[in-house]
Amino acid sequence: MANGMNRISWLGTSPRNAFMLAGLVALLVLLPLFLGQSWLSITTEMLILALAASSLNIMLGYTGMVSFGPAGIYAVGAYTTGVFMEKLGIGIVPAVLAAPVMAGIIGFLVGWICVRRSAVYFALLTLAFSQIIWTVVFQWYSVTGGDDGLVSVPVPDFFFEITNCYYFMLAVVSVCLFIIWKIVNSPFGMTLQAIRENPNRVEFIGVNVKHYQLASFVISSVFLGIAGSMHCVFSGSAFPDYAYWVKSADMLVICLLGGIYNFFGPLVGTVVYTVLTKVISEYTMHWHLVLGGIIVLIILAMRKGVVGTLANYWANRKSAAA
């Protein structure tokens, strides 16, 4: 348990790290110059997925709450934007802004019940709620389009040009990630990490642990809602699959691949996961088999994820050199 605290602030504010971050941003801004249409579209999708995974990681990595149901909340965001635009004819700006609000409200109601229990029961409750959301989306034909989904969300022409869409998503995702970064590194975020390390001791020093867990749940939901909404704008559609448990599992695996005890873990995990699935599915039809094998290997050999393992490696090298 105690392996997260010191490493979570890796990539802090040293000049070298600031330089690396600036380089990364420059690379992302210049990316459309090098990438073809299809890869740019994949990268845009990666940005959205990275935001969703980072939102989940507020709960998972920072507060130590294993949620099986992030996809449910993600779908709430996507469908809010989709239904507002396609069924109610509301403009894109209010439709997008409504998504985090709706996701936050649903997140509050679901979280209010879920945080009463911990560990296995918490995980199963979140799974139950996401399956309920999936059922509602799947069955409520008149509003959500049922299993056909929403397929003709009237997104402005601006987004049809993939480069525009990419820059828009890059801006939204960057701002959101910056806010998440600020939150998890604030005193509030430190309290969340303390709860992860030892909820009992935090309770003893007078912190209402359940309130903080609920706050973590709601914040996570708000950003998941934004991610869902962005995906709806990006693809002009929304499907019940968004709420399905497979999508939640994808997000969990992404966080784990990158490393849950690091802010950049879910981002790296997204890149690794997306590239892996694309590459593997080109070579074999049975990519689930390969993916499953890779996950098993990671858990048996590289439990801290890509970023965690690298961070450890660097830390060891540094201490060896000193």
Binding site: L60, V66, F68, A119, V120, A123, A249, L252, V253, L256, I260, L291, G292, G293, I295, V296, I299, R303
Partner: peptide, 11 residues
């Protein structure tokens, strides 16, 4: 716990 979940999910 999370690692146990994900491992059995890989299965």
């Amino acid at each position: 716990m999370i690692y146990q979940y994900i491992l059995t999910f890989a299965l």
